[in-house]
């Protein structure tokens, strides 16, 4: 049985700047990282591999340099790394991204059954949190989002019980396998690659699947398959902050001042 982790290579957003003229991301020289949530998806797939003997696969769609991200996954211990890369996939929105990733999972399922697909809760660049659910719908998988704990897995009975972390509460749900699970950071603590694994991964194969392999309708992928487009990207201007009072000299007075301000600006209910 396969357990698949979808991982996306994202620009390190702490370092991203927006070109004020063209309104696009300045990507020059910005290092790419694995989307932080996806490292938890990957970790969970590796834990399942260790615990149940599943085959772990890492899957990503992106330009050829995404290979680096997949090598990281190999260094952490996945058995297979698959990169969906084709010029035709470029400019994808969440819909066409889900189309491609779902097709790749279907293709993988021809080799062996896919039991669970892990995705991050969302990415730090696109931030839509739609791709995971998009994949689930297209594959007809159970959809379990915002999971922070796997309560129980019975893969013979094809059942999984998880805890979802919602605002102010938890929800425990049970679903049938195969399932698509999006994960939050509390789920686990990602591992670090050992050096022998890194060196091994440097030579391991990253499979590249283009549209010849996936056979998708060219109108359902990439820019053509994307009904959304970006009209403008911009950083909202933030008003400059203000230092109030003298926290060192008069902490009590300053606290009072702060409270008054917060109440006055309706940020605190009294």
């Amino acid at each position: 049985m396969y357990v698949v982790a979808c991982i996306k290579q994202v620009p390190d957003t702490t370092q991203v700047q927006i070109d004020p003229v063209t309104n696009t991301l300045v990507r020059d020289g910005i290092p790419f990282i694995v989307n932080p949530y996806d490292t938890h998806a990957l970790e969970e797939s590796l834990r399942m591999k260790a615990r149940y003997g599943f085959k772990a696969a890492a899957l990503s769609m992106g330009p050829p340099n995404t290979e680096a991200t997949l090598r990281k996954a190999l260094a952490l211990g996945v058995d297979e790394a698959i990169l969906c890369s084709d010029r035709a996939f470029g400019g994808a929105d969440t819909l066409s991204t889900s189309n491609v990733l779902a097709a790749a999972i279907r293709k993988l399922a021809q080799e062996d059954e896919v039991g669970i697909v892990f995705c991050g809760k969302q990415t730090i660049d696109g931030d839509t949190a739609q791709v995971g659910p998009g994949i689930a719908i297209r594959l007809g998988f159970s959809q379990l989002t915002l999971v922070d704990r796997i309560e129980h897995l019975d893969f013979l009975a094809k059942k999984i019980r998880v805890r979802r972390k919602l605002e102010g509460r938890y929800e425990i749900v049970e679903a049938k396998l195969p399932a698509m699970i999006t994960v939050v950071r509390e789920l686990n603590r990602p591992r670090y690659p050992t050096v022998p694994m890194r060196l091994k991964a440097a030579k391991a194969e990253v499979k590249v699947w283009d549209n010849k392999e996936l056979q998708l309708d060219p109108n359902s992928v990439g820019l053509k398959g994307s009904p959304t487009w970006v009209s403008r990207i911009f950083s909202p201007q933030r008003a400059a902050g203000e230092i109030i009072g003298d926290g060192m000299g008069d902490p009590a007075g300053t606290a009072r001042l702060l409270l008054e301000k917060l109440v006055a600006s309706d940020m605190l209910a009294v």
Partner: peptide, 28 residues
Amino acid sequence: VQMEADFPEELLNLFENMEQRSNPWGIA
């Protein structure tokens, strides 16, 4: 660190910051 990847939790951040941003705080 290198054979077991076994170290105190806090160091994971440090290692990632160093590798990705070449400073311990992870500042750009």
